[in-house]
Design a protein around this nucleic acid. Structure first.
Lengths: 198, 198
DNA sequence: AAAATAATAACGAACGTCCGTTTTTTTTTA
DNA sequence: TAAAAAAAAACGGACGTTCGTTATTATTTT
């Protein structure tokens, strides 16, 4: 019934990670210096190295603790719905609700891909692989027919559908974005469920 | 670079851009140094600065000359097909054919977003905006019914469909990728055209 | 409970290296 | 031989990392 005492070192460690996260997000990995991280965490440079052996160790800690799947997976797992369609629709909407609070989550993956060539991804997937499988059951638990799509490919397409929404939004300058109307997401969901063909 | 360019000067300039492109793609912008660019271009450091005023100027030149739209737009414009469906299908397949030769093209956009926060994108879109409009006509020229989707949103969803394919591929480690089967793209195309629902 | 000891946390200066850029000199080209 | 291109050398500054040291807590011994 009583919580573990969080030691001071742990607090400092997460303060460093939080500072690093903010800086990495806005400047990228190589664009962020250890001095910036130290300053934002309220430490000196040497103090940071008392908690992390290297800059890359900080990145790995941030990547593993804050990667989008920690947000995406629970949402998907908790989604309810009677038919497959409403299930997918609800999952999509709930995901957007979560991701809108943390709209920069995909950025983590971008940085990993751009600046590390995805070299940490295999280890990442090894960690979340056990959580990926139950998703198949959730998606196919609802009533209604789904296309005959390999399960893993279905999950991939679902995630891809999300990425496509956010990435095209990130890529479009505001001038163009306003021309698209308000409910672009609902259109994207419809397209994912039923395609562009009438 | 401010003087008039001779033939040799132009060759050197594009040699620099080619070297920079390769390095940026594999290491990102901040992860690439001017010395690396010079060495790969077969020059010394000072020689590079005779052609480009700064590192960022090289990036801008690469971004504007090699951004994916220079590949995507002509392909889309030249696509033929009788019905809307075959038209879209052909466009998708031809695009993949082109992008497979240069599968790292999307990377350019990633780098711009991650390391520059997309600060050069507005200028980029100002340049390609006039070429974007004719796409609506191409897509809707074929026979057959298309959903009632705002034209710009349709283009966005089409590009997004591509991004979703390549990004999920980039994000999946090889171990998972092999579990998805060979013709993942055809499945993605089908989903885009007709949705995941049966 | 007090003293001694060990472990942790943070500091500030310094290291050598590499960075982007500039200036100066040499070579090539027309 | 004058202009353009490339090489060579140098600049100050920022980088990631290491170091020796000092406060601050925690643990053990009296």
């Amino acid at each position: 019934m009583h919580e573990e005492l969080t030691r001071k070192g742990e607090q400092t460690q997460s303060r460093i990670m939080e500072a690093a996260y903010v800086l990495f997000m806005s400047q990228g990995y190589h664009g962020t210096s250890m001095r910036q991280i130290a300053q934002r965490a309220g430490l000196t440079l040497g103090g940071v190295y008392a908690h992390f052996a290297s800059k890359e160790e900080i990145w790995k800690a941030v990547l593993f603790e804050r990667h989008p799947y920690h947000t995406i997976l629970p949402v998907l797992r908790a989604t309810e719905g009677k038919t497959v369609e409403t299930l997918l629709r609800n999952a999509a909407r709930r995901l957007v609700g979560e991701l809108e609070k943390r709209s920069d989550l995909l950025h983590l993956m971008f940085i990993e891909i751009v600046e590390f060539n995805g070299m940490h991804l295999p280890a990442l997937y090894e960690q979340i692989a056990p959580e990926l499988t139950p998703l198949f059951d959730v998606i196919q638990a609802g009533e209604g027919r789904l296309r005959a799509i390999p399960p893993l490919l279905l999950v991939r397409s679902f995630l891809g559908f999300f990425f496509s929404y956010y990435i095209t939004e990130a890529m479009m300058p505001p001038s163009l974005r306003s021309l698209m109307g308000e409910d672009a997401l609902e259109v994207f969901i419809d397209i994912y469920l039923h395609g562009v063909m009438a």
